[in-house]
Design a protein around this nucleic acid. Structure first.
Length: 575
RNA sequence: GCGCCAGUGGUGUAGCCUGGUAUCACUCUGGCCUUCCAAGCCAGUAACUCGGGUUCAAAUCCCGACUGGCGCACCA
């Protein structure tokens, strides 16, 4: 038994129509897979379950945006810079290195923000050589993990295949906020393909160049990160692998995991706030709903140096697989306002939300009334600049201005390098009381992001079962692609006709059923077991006498007998 | 991207060293048989990863590409 489970699962997946490697007749390309007929249904069933959780239960709305994304968007989001690694290759031994890492190791310089030319110069200037063989380096080149394309004829606009679905949500934030009538919190989801041009994708379906993500973006008030339904989940016990325990060398790898209620985890500050904890619970419930083995699931906190540049806390749902060990299938991150801020700065569009207070506040404020006739003539072109600056002053600055005007008769307003002299007759300042009913805030976003392909593979592996005389997929009836197999026990006495009719009737009721009359009955059961079909209906001699059939359960192989006209109801109740 | 190893019907394989019509089993399809868990009988479909070279002749020898496995590197 040297063959590992991955191989067995992938073999079954290939033979029985779950997963096929793409472009096979042309030799194939690493990092791409096709979902075969049954795999496609399974994946869709997983996605449907996901939608039940997020769209129905959590009241998220889903959008669907383009996969091709213009340069500007990904420049703003930081992906153009962060997805592009500068690589350098040794001319002697052909080994590749990260150019920035090599430089930092050798001359202790921060290379952040340096251009390729600057990196090149640094290597030449300090005569940095290959740490392996001492050979000379070639030129620094960028390896971009995003697929580059051009939009329109002539390639005037650069685009990339999106590296995540989330950006599509962020850049529509203004519309989304108004769709939700500016009430925080609200959630938006997107399910779709994302693309990463991996250098060397070698773990089959685990690391793909084109993959399906289901991402949920939950926008919250930056100061309110508790969750109104946290009470529903606070007693859920979750296997957690916190950052400090991961780094504790005195613990064995089993001891690093602690089973803890989410209430404790939040109270002890292990999970940063309720909203992350809440989505940890939803993630666990979703994964268990589709049939992931709870004993092969844990939540691991990112270490401080592993966190993405935008995140302040991140927990991955990791699922155990035979060959690859624990693999990351879901990431739940607090992305703060990183993305909205970035898009706001780059696009110039205000993406903040006006949040009303419970009760309007009354505050003391100053009203600046400009004497435009005078001021306009004095400042001319700079008029607008001065006006804006004055209007944006806070109370303490205005108080200082008033004080200086009273004492010296003038105030020097400094804007960048320029100085403007403000005199008493330029403006009138009135102290007023104002009613303020709310404030503008830039929301933070909590993001649970699911890798659907990895989850699908893990589910197949967890469902894979071997017994002495059979191999079967113990898929939950809810996600199994084919729900029912219908067979005549033998091909005579009208049994095939009755079986066919039962199959048709199930199909009419929206249930995927397969008819099969070839070979011995046992063989047909085995075929259905191997693809994970939960129920098999057999028409036999007794059917002809009293109109009953048997339903065989996949896992126990036990059979019960019911009337033909109860079949549809029975199946519907059990899937 | 580098190094080592491998690639034969749907699956697992024999053949490769020593060049000459590709083996066997299972699966699958059709038929017969069969009254409940891969039984049996008959018939059938189906493969040398791709490209180039050497040769009268290449699955076999040589080179390259692709794919897969392992190690290194990479994986915000």
């Amino acid at each position: 038994m040297s063959e590992d489970k991955y191989e067995k699962v992938m073999d079954l997946a290939k033979r029985r129509g779950y997963l096929w490697s793409s472009f096979e007749i042309y030799g194939g390309i690493a990092g791409f897979v096709d979902y075969a007929p049954l795999g496609t249904i399974l994946k869709n069933n997983i996605i449907d379950t996901w939608r039940k959780h997020y769209i129905i239960n959590e009241e998220f709305y889903e959008i669907d945006s383009p996969t091709i994304t213009p340069y500007e968007v990904l420049k703003a989001s930081g992906h153009v810079d962060n997805f592009t690694d500068p690589m350098v290759e040794c001319k002697e031994c052909l080994e590749s290195f990260r150019a920035d890492h090599i430089i930092e190791e050798n001359i202790n310089i921060n290379t952040e923000g340096k251009t390729l030319e600057e990196l090149n110069e640094l290597i030449k200037k300090h005569n940095i050589r290959c740490p392996k063989c001492g050979g000379e380096f070639g030129d620094v080149k960028k390896y971009n993990l995003m697929f580059l394309t051009s939009i329109g004829p002539g390639g005037k606009r650069t685009g990339y295949m999106r590296p995540e679905t989330a950006q599509g949500i962020f850049i529509q934030f203004k519309r989304l906020a108004s769709f939700f009538r500016n009430k925080l919190p609200f959630g938006v989801a997107q399910i779709g393909k994302s693309y990463r041009n991996e250098i060397s994708p070698r773990q089959g379906v685990i690391r793909l160049r084109e993959f399906t993500q289901a991402e949920a973006e939950f926008f919250v008030h930056p100061k309110i990160k508790n969750h109104k339904r946290f009470k529903d989940v606070e007693n859920d016990i979750i296997p957690l692998l916190p950052a400090d325990r991961q780094m504790d060398e005195t613990l064995s790898s089993e001891e690093k995991v602690v089973n803890m209620s989410l209430k404790d985890a939040v109270e002890k500050g292990i999970i940063r706030h309720e909203t992350i904890a809440y989505f940890v619970a939803i993630t666990k419930r979703f994964l268990m709903d589709i049939g992931i083995d709870i004993n092969r699931l844990r939540f691991r906190q990112h270490l401080p140096d592993e966190m993405a540049h935008y995140a302040i806390d991140c927990w991955d749902a990791e699922i155990y697989t035979d060959r690859f060990g624990w693999i990351e299938c879901v990431g739940i991150a607090d992305r703060t306002d990183y993305d909205l801020k970035a898009h706001m700065n780059h696009s110039g569009v205000d993406l903040s939300v006006f949040v009303e207070y419970d009760k309007p506040k009354e505050i003391e404020t100053y009203d600046i009334e400009l004497n435009y006739k005078v001021v306009g003539k004095v400042f001319k072109k700079d008029m607008k600049l001065v006006e804006n600056t004055l209007n944006n002053m806070d109370n303490s600055e205005i108080e200082k201005l008033v004080k200086e005007l009273n004492e010296n008769g003038k105030y020097i307003l400094t804007i960048e390098d320029k100085e403007f002299e403000i005199l008493n007759d330029y403006l009138k300042i009135n102290k007023t009381k104002k009613k303020i009913s709310g404030e503008k805030v830039l929301p933070h976003v909590i993001e649970p992001s699911y890798g659907i392909d990895r989850i699908t593979y893990c589910l197949l592996e967890h469902a894979y079962n071997e017994e002495e005389d059979r191999t079967y997929l113990k898929l939950k009836p809810e996600v199994a692609p084919v729900k029912v197999g219908v067979f005549p026990l033998v091909n005579k006495q009208g049994m095939p006709e009755i079986a066919m009719e039962i199959k048709d009737n199930l199909r009419k009721n929206g249930i995927i059923a397969e008819y099969d009359d070839s070979g011995a009955i046992g063989r047909r059961y085995m075929r259905m077991d191997e693809v994970g079909t939960p129920f098999c209906i057999t028409v036999d001699g007794q059917t002809l006498e009293d109109g009953t059939i048997t339903i065989r359960h996949r896992d126990t192989r036990e059979q019960i007998r019911i009337k033909i006209d109860e079949v549809v109801d029975y199946i519907k109740r059990n899937i």
